[in-house]
């Protein structure tokens, strides 16, 4: 039932796609590949935030292909909320050399293709991206989405412990994953990829 609904939704999106050059977004994805993604934005309001930087890394099998990463700086059209600058460390002059948002997104789309997307609180990042994509392509990103906080919740929640601490600190600690300096989109994408690999069960050939 759900599958059928998703298929129908995908068909609908495909019909709405304005630029046929992007039809590859609907191709069957390569097996055992995902893309972990993270953005830094001008504010925390999905209705108005603009992208400042994007990082994406491909996951294939049990490998995070860091050497083929995508790291982009984006020049926002509006101003950066001063309160957000200490968090991401990007000032107006830092992103002045960035790409125009449409060009950055075009490169992102080419990088991710039709692979499923992985991220930590992916919803916000993708909402911002989709808001920029819609006026241009007519659709948001059609890729399947895997939020690692959701994966983690499913793994941890029990009737006895209905409350699961979904902070990144708590997740990394519980899963015994290494911590990297945060609020660097590449590091955040790597952390999400690590959480994904640890929770995702299909890893080839045990000993």
């Amino acid at each position: 039932m759900r599958r059928w609904w998703q298929q129908a939704l995908l068909q609908l999106q495909r019909r709405r796609l304005r630029d046929p050059a992007y039809a590859y977004l609907f191709a069957p994805p390569p097996a055992q590949e995902w893309v972990s993604i993270d953005c830094e934005t001008t504010s925390l309001d999905p209705g108005s935030a603009e992208i400042l930087s994007i990082a994406a890394v491909r996951i294939s099998g049990n490998c995070i292909s860091l050497s083929e990463r995508l790291e982009l700086l984006v020049q926002p059209e509006g101003a950066i909320t001063p309160a957000s600058i200490p968090i991401h460390g990007l000032r107006a002059q830092d992103v002045a050399a960035g790409l125009p948002v449409r060009e950055a997104l075009a490169r992102l789309l080419a990088f991710i293709g039709s692979r499923p997307l992985v991220g930590y609180y992916l919803e916000f990042d993708l909402a911002v991206i989709d808001r920029q994509l819609r006026p241009w392509l007519g659709i948001g990103l059609p890729n399947p989405r895997i939020d690692v906080s959701g994966l983690y919740y499913d793994r941890m929640v029990t009737a006895y412990h209905p409350d699961v601490d979904l902070s990144l600190d708590a997740i990394l600690h519980t899963l015994q994953l290494p911590d990297l300096p945060r609020h660097d989109p590449l590091n955040d994408a790597i952390l999400a990829a690590l959480i994904f690999l640890k929770l995702h069960s299909q890893i080839p050939e045990p000993l």
Binding site: N62, C63, I64, S65, L66, S67, I190, A193, L194, L197, K198, I203, E205, P206, L207
Partner: peptide
């Protein structure tokens, strides 16, 4: 690149 191996793999 980064690789992940579960215990005993």
């Amino acid at each position: 690149d980064i690789l992940y191996f579960p215990a005993q793999h």
